[in-house]
Structures are given as structure tokens and as C-alpha cells.
Design a protein around this nucleic acid. Structure first.
Length: 423
RNA sequence: GGAGAGAUGGCAGAGUGGUCGAAUGCGGUGGUCUUGAAAACCAUUGUGCAGCAAUGUACCGGGGGUUCGAAUCCCUCUCUCUCCGCCA
């Protein structure tokens, strides 16, 4: 969520930048600034009245002690009038604040100045391509065919016990999955990230803090009886670890990593690119999260992008990094780089990571701040990315590493798998 | 699921109608002392909002109420803990 003071200070620039996200902010900003000015006036007036009322109350107390009951009763009458007025002002202010909030929550985050115009993913900019696309055997199989051929994943069993989008990993499939998780976590920990295993269900406050509520509640699984939500990503519990905190600047950046399953209803996306592991309701992901000062957050974003690149290099998968255009950028992000690996049998690029800087859009809502040497408080910048999402990496490994003899295990995974080929 | 207790500043913990934004201890920060450190001593140390500032105002789990005046009384919600039961 943006805050009004920033909007007031940077109005024209914000309007210009939000156009890149195809959001016309000019009239909303006018309304917001006007309402906020009204709010300030109300605050001043109300404080003044309360000041008087507080003073009267003290005087009344003193008079009672002196036994001057009559004079005290006179002041009481005065005080009652004041009290009535302050109550009125209080409610006015409250409703004004609510109106301001309602407007603010519908304004997307300001894109970074380097974000380009564009409507859809077609307008994204490929900033790096790496690795070479493998030449596959003649009748190369897709990952779902390979998964079934080598009995690595049973999609039918998942249908039986839950429904579509809930695969069952079996035997070497399960081990490959587990190896990838361990490998990713080890890489992240070596890069200075601290590992967390958070709860997989979160309360309303947490879902609100990272912005899934109030608007995206239909994308989360909801446990009604306890009013808890299954996490759609580790970002939710991990970022919320720091909700309502004031962090010492010296302890920034804070770097966290976490492996969790992710649960997504994916309402409305049925029937679209959903074969095999391409789109699931439950999938595993290793996430990285950083908290950083505004001055260094873009440096940190680059660092995170390099880190993810490094993992994909080691896995020897062909990938490209895409910088999202304004139209494709998410509501809450200022700048996002997507990582896509090439899945050679499907002949498709699959998104496996999305690394974003949210600047203070999340932290404003989370009340996540840091304190500098002089004790001044500022909102943190929050960043996160996948390092990495499992299913599509799994898919790409099966497809790209397939040979007539079986699926070669990528070098860096061999020690985890205790195996060099799946056949 | 049954019974009970509780929610106060970074933590611990006092405070049952005015002098309480809140004692005290621990912790943090700064200083004195010291060659340095420890100890000791002194000072300082919550957050939001409004204001250039002085300052004002709000906040003692959330919401509502009583009162001239509420951390303190009443109502309500939420959460936490303890014991019993069940169970990994």
C-alpha cells in the first residue's frame, strides 16, 4: 500500500510512472490528497477540544477535593458539551480514514523508473539467455510421459485421493524432488540466507499483511472452521515474521530462505496449460526473502537475480531472464525479473522463478520499519523470489536430460540422489 | 472436548477511578572510572497522528459502554497459558 505523504510529495512522478502500469492515478490522487488534508484538520481540531476537556477534568477533580461541589458541577456541564463534540469529530475522522484506506488499497505499487511500457508478457524484455537448448532423441517424451514411463509421478493417484493438480511423487521421483529441495536450500544457506520452517497455515492478519487479503482471497484455500488460510507461497509466513517490527539498521539486510508446499486454488485457470506439472494446486517451492534499506534494495535485487542464475547454471538448464513490462508487472511489485527454463520436449519456456522488489509497498501494510543510527524510522524494502519452484524444474530436468538409456541426473544432484541415471 | 487463569513498554512484573504513558528489575544506548575490559556509578531509553517547533493528542489484547475523569468498573470478541480427557 502506498502512503499519502509520498503521494503528496511525488504526485506528478507517480502519475507518470503508474501510467506504465496502465493505471490512471490523477483523479484518485486529487481525492486522496484532499481527504488527507481534511483528516489533518480534523485531527487538529479534535486534539484541541480534547486538550480542553482533559484540562477541565483535572480542574473538576481538584474542586471536588476542595469540597467545592457547586463549581465542579458547573464545569461538568461544560465538559459534557466538549465531549459530545469530540465524539462527533472522532467518528468523522474515522470514516475519513476508512475512505482513504479504501482508495489506497486499490492503487498498485509504483513501478521502477526502468520498467518499460507494454500490455502483456509479449512485451517483456529478455535481458539474458543462457545455456544451450539440448537436441533430443527423435521421439522425445514430455515429462508427464517420462514420469509415467519411469514411475516417478502418478497423477491418477493424486486424482483419486484429492483431485487434479495434486500429484503423487513415487520412489525415485520422490527422491529427485527431495534432492532438489535440499540442493536449493543448501545453495541459499551458503549464500547467507537463514533457513526457516514456518507454519503452512496463516491467520487473517498475515494474509492481509502480504496483500493476499482482502482481494485475492479466492486464490487461497481457506479452512473455515478455524479461519486459517493455506499458504500460497512461503513469502506469506516468512515476511510476516517481521510484521510490526522496528529493525536496527545494522542488522539489515535480513536474508531468509524457506521450503514449503504452496497451495493455490488457481480458480479460473482450468484447462489452460495444465498438463503434467505445468500448473498445480499443491507444489513445492524454496523461497528467498530479503529485507533491505531503500538505498540498497535494487543492488539486493541484482544480487538475488545473480543467485538464481547461478543455481540454474549449475543445473545446466537453458534459461532466460525476462524483465516484466508495466502491463505484466504484478499489482504489488515495482520491478520483477522472471526466470524461465526451456522444457525441450514441450518446446516451451516455463516460469520457474519470479524475483521482485516491492519497495515499501508491503512493509507499509506490515508496519515493518528500520531505525537508523539517529533513531529515525523508515519503512523497509522487501524483496523475494523463488530459488526455486520445484515442479517445472523437475519437468525440465526430465525432458532435457532424457536419453535412450534413461534420465541423466544433473551433476550437482548426483550426490543428493546417490544416483547418476534414472532408468 | 471439559474446568480454570490470564493478556500492561524489548523482556520480566507492579498498578482496582484523578497526581499513570505507567513503579521496580533486567536488557539497550551514551557517559564517568580503567592502559583495556569487567564491575560500579550517572544519565537516557515505547509507538502512531497533528505541528517548523514548543507542544498537543491517542494507545495498557480488539471493539463498545459507564463517568467530568478509565490500565483500573461494565458488556462483548479474540488470543494465550494451566489442569483433565483424547492423540502424533
Amino acid at each position: 500500500m502506498l502512503n499519502v505523504n509520498d503521494i503528496r510529495d511525488n504526485k506528478e512522478e507517480y502519475i507518470r510512472l503508474l501510467k506504465i502500469k496502465n493505471f490512471d492515478a490523477s483523479s484518485v490522487f486529487e481525492i486522496l490528497i484532499r481527504k488527507d488534508n481534511d483528516r489533518k484538520l480534523l485531527q487538529q481540531k479534535n486534539d484541541e477540544l480534547l486538550f480542553k476537556a482533559n484540562k477541565l477534568a483535572k480542574e473538576i477533580g481538584a474542586l471536588y477535593k476542595e469540597g467545592k461541589k457547586l463549581e465542579a458541577d458547573e464545569l461538568k456541564a461544560k465538559s459534557l458539551i466538549l465531549k459530545k463534540k469530540t465524539k462527533e469529530l472522532h467518528f468523522k475522522k474515522e470514516s475519513l480514514e476508512k475512505e482513504i484506506y479504501e482508495k489506497l488499497k486499490d492503487i498498485p505499487n509504483i513501478p521502477h523508473s526502468s520498467v518499460t511500457n507494454g500490455e502483456t508478457e509479449k512485451d517483456n524484455i529478455i535481458i539474458k539467455e543462457s545455456g544451450k537448448i539440448p537436441i533430443l532423441v527423435n521421439n522425445a517424451l514430455t515429462h508427464w510421459e517420462l514420469a509415467s514411463k519411469y514411475n516417478l509421478i502418478d497423477f491418477e493417484l493424486g486424482n483419486k485421493i484429492t483431485g487434479s493438480g495434486f500429484p503423487v511423487y513415487i520412489d525415485k521421483g520422490a527422491k529427485l524432488q527431495r534432492s532438489l529441495i535440499s540442493y536449493f536450500l543448501d545453495k541459499n544457506i551458503n549464500a547467507g540466507y537463514k533457513e526457516f520452517i514456518p507454519p503452512h497455515l496463516v491467520n487473517e492478519d498475515s494474509a492481509f499483511g502480504t496483500g493476499q487479503l482482502p482481494d485475492k482471497d479466492d486464490q487461497m484455500y481457506h479452512v473455515k472452521l478455524d479461519n486459517l488460510y493455506l499458504i500460497p507461497t512461503a513469502e506469506v509466513p516468512i515476511t510476516n515474521l517481521f510484521r510490526n517490527q522496528i529493525i536496527d539498521q545494522n542488522s539489515l539486510p535480513i536474508k531468509c530462505t524457506s521450503f514449503t508446499p504452496c497451495f493455490r486454488r488457481e480458480a479460473g485457470s482450468y484447462g489452460k496449460d495444465v498438463r503434467g506439472l505445468n500448473r498445480l494446486h499443491q507444489f513445492d517451492k524454496v523461497e528467498i526473502v530479503q529485507l533491505q534499506t531503500p538505498e540498497k534494495s535494487y543492488q539486493t535485487l541484482d544480487e538475488m537475480v545473480n543467485h538464481v542464475s547461478n543455481i540454474l547454471d549449475e543445473l545446466d538448464l537453458p534459461y532466460r531472464i525476462v524483465k516484466l513490462c508495466g502491463g505484466d508487472l504484478s499489482f504489488t511489485s515495482s520491478l520483477t525479473y522472471d526466470f524461465e527454463v526451456y522444457s525441450a520436449a514441450q518446446k516451451r519456456w516455463l516460469e520457474v522463478s519470479s524475483v521482485s522488489n516491492f519497495e515499501n509497498y508491503q512493509s507499509n501494510r506490515l508496519k515493518l520499519r528500520y531505525k537508523d543510527k539517529n533513531g529515525k524510522k523508515y519503512l523497509c524494502h522487501t524483496l523475494n523470489g523463488s530459488a526455486l519452484a520445484l515442479p517445472r524444474i523437475f519437468a525440465a530436468i526430465l525432458e532435457n536430460y532424457q536419453t535412450e538409456k534413461g534420465i541423466i541426473v544433473p551433476k550437482v544432484l548426483q550426490s543428493y540422489m546417490d544416483l547418476t541415471i534414472i532408468n
